[in-house]
Amino acid sequence: MKLVPEKVGAWLLGTGPDSEFVISTRVRFARNLAEVPFSPRMKPADGELVVETVRWALADSGYLNQGQLFTDGMLSEPDGFYFVERHLASPDFITQKNRKGLYVSDDETISLMVNEEDHIRFQALASGFDFATAFSKASALDEKLEGQLSYAFSPELGFLTACPTNVGTAMRASVLLHLPALVLTREIEKVLRGAYAIGLLVRGIYGEGSETRGNLFQVSNRKTLGQSEAEIIEVLTSTCRQIIDYEHKARQFLMHNLRVEVEDKVFRSLGLLRGARIISSEEATNLLATVRLGVALGIINELKIAEVSQLLVLVRPANLQAILGEKMDAAERDERRATFIRQKLVR
């Protein structure tokens, strides 16, 4: 089994619709096997059974040929955070102790966690604002797996999940938005409150409990029961479309009224990234996000959105270590990170 740290997922190529505002779109399904106890009651043999069953299902449906199934050793702390930083696994998955497996497709647009909170959680990621691609990819895998596995399902409650928060469609659809102008114009609170009021959830870049760094916000559905998959996606699409429009207007406002201030902020960020000799992951994330805004606004022409988006992932601790091929302590990492970013931003 091999990682390719320098290569980022196809979903990060920044080619999708509305890439100036949206990093990625994601659709995730949770599924459980009817005959096997859920995570709180799972015995080691049950965990193994689920991992092996899913391995066969992925092999028989042709997915295993187009990706890799990682198992326990590589998925534990701290190495497993490599996948978390790439949005292919959740932090909870890495820290939990049951037998586990992680399938990742070669282009990193599809991933599947075995034995997270539910037996199976799989997702499809698409670049930019693109539910059509993410939903059809995730659904295709769902259909293939359904033919192979006996899902826990009831006509009344839909797909049964370990936590009642996810029961029903067991689908979580989300959009990772970059909203710097709404933050700068202090409109963000209003927008996010509005999203919450219509049943959506807004979180930081790495999901549940994570802080909002780099003005990146993940908007997803909160409810899974009583609304069909299509309805959930429709609400998310129209709401995110509105948020994008607000952000667009806020960016125009900034460019018309505070152009020099914005340019100053953008070029200072770029200057820091190009000049720094020691830089933390958090500082790098924030500066890169500002540079990303600069590229989106046409203030910086020498960089591409995709390059900056990719750097946002590559400068994270576990990915940086994977690229440099050695374990480092935090201080050493901050130094190597600065060097790495300088090399990447040189023109």
Binding site: Y151, L225, G226, E229
Partner: peptide, 28 residues
């Protein structure tokens, strides 16, 4: 009551499991 509070609903709408159930059980 928990489901009603979480989701505002107690009846699933959307995708259902149609095929492969029996076969899937045999496979398990």
């Amino acid at each position: 009551p928990i489901l009603r509070r979480l989701h505002g609903a107690v009846q699933h709408v959307g995708r259902t499991v149609q095929q492969g159930r029996k076969r899937a059980q045999e496979r398990l």
